[in-house]
Design a protein around this nucleic acid. Structure first.
Lengths: 206, 206
DNA sequence: GTCTATATTGTGATAGAC
DNA sequence: GTCTATCACAATATAGAC
């Protein structure tokens, strides 16, 4: 699929996603989106009545992309720690390809929390099922006792924060070396898995 | 110290901090800051020439507040895991009192990474010293081998992300119940410590 | 120092030709 | 569908009275 074969609407959406992710809703300019798309402002309004509507169109896809599909992965019939490993690998890989996603979503949701309600039904997250799965493994002695919600939060925190805090961490711990930081992020696919695995492995019964 | 005893400059700074933390630089309006301070727009420019300058004035304090003083805590002569506990407790407590701080700092640094360079010298972070301290404990067999930078990143991730991602997590896992989520955040002071401790405790040698 | 006006620029949105 | 030109208003910033 060549870039040129895309219709105008798709070109606009691609451009809008780039600009909104870079600048956020308040910082984005319709002019910059038009430039990025190689068209003029008027056409943006022709396709999407307003800036708000255009934003909504890209936000919904960005949001569902960021929303980790924890359930799917953790509900397969593989061993528990293998599922953790698969999830981390997939999620970090997705973030490597969309590094601006975390801070964008976090920021927009923070400034406008009502959005989350509107878009949540579409994602189909089911914490109850997830909780049962985790507690099953706790009872079987495969993992230490832990609040399922804590585990999910820890999982996402360890994966997503290094992307959201990239400028800070890169400067503080990696001498602002982009390449070094990229390597660090890639290494996290295994590091996070190891860290969580160690945290969850039950005490050896002597 | 009564609110009325503060001079105008301090009143403006307090108001600016509130508004900038709520809305971000792009979303903040000078009018809203003036209203919050109970004065008019012109006076803002009298004290701080421009919006940018006013922002810089509040950013530097917000930034150094968010910057975890990992070094100080971890370099005391207490046992390693006790130091972790103290750090987590202090840091999460500070975030409970400034819940908007993480997403604000993350977002502003992401939109304008150069800032981090300007303000970093003032904070006095020294990763090298920190690295030695951690490696000392690794060699002594007190903790598992781990890249010091990974440990620091994990520590901050687990503490700060639940605040940055509050609207998302609250909706996804806590049915949008504010009180429940507040309890969850408070509980993290101990939960994070336990999680990290378990992850770092060396394998029992049989 | 603090205020009321006002200047000036930026930006989302529309009108209308092609 | 796509463009140029323009409107309408919002927001930063300044002038000048008190």
């Amino acid at each position: 699929m060549d870039e040129n074969e895309k219709n105008t609407e798709e070109i606009i959406l691609d451009a809008a996603k780039k600009v909104f992710l870079r600048r956020g809703f308040d910082g984005a300019r319709m002019q910059e989106i038009a430039d990025e798309a190689g068209i003029n402002k008027a056409l943006l309004h022709y396709y999407f009545r307003s800036k708000e509507k255009l934003f909504d169109a890209i936000f919904i896809t960005a949001f569902s992309q960021f929303l980790p599909h924890v359930s799917e992965t953790l509900l397969s019939d593989k061993p528990f720690f293998e599922k953790i490993q698969i999830f981390v690998e997939h999620y970090v890989q997705m973030l490597l390809e969309n590094p601006h996603l975390p801070v964008f979503i976090l920021n927009e949701l923070s400034r406008n929390p009502e959005r989350v309600v509107n878009f949540f039904k579409l994602a189909g997250v089911s914490p109850e099922v997830l909780g049962k799965e985790i507690q099953k493994n706790v009872k079987a002695g495969i993992i230490r006792p832990i609040d399922p919600r804590s585990l999910v939060v820890n999982l996402i925190s360890l994966c997503a924060f290094p992307f959201a805090g990239k400028p800070l961490i890169k400067a503080a711990l990696f001498d602002n070396n982009e390449e070094l930081y990229q390597q660090f992020l890639i290494k996290r696919k295994t590091e996070v898995t190891i860290f969580i695995t160690n945290a969850l492995k039950p005490e050896k019964t002597l």
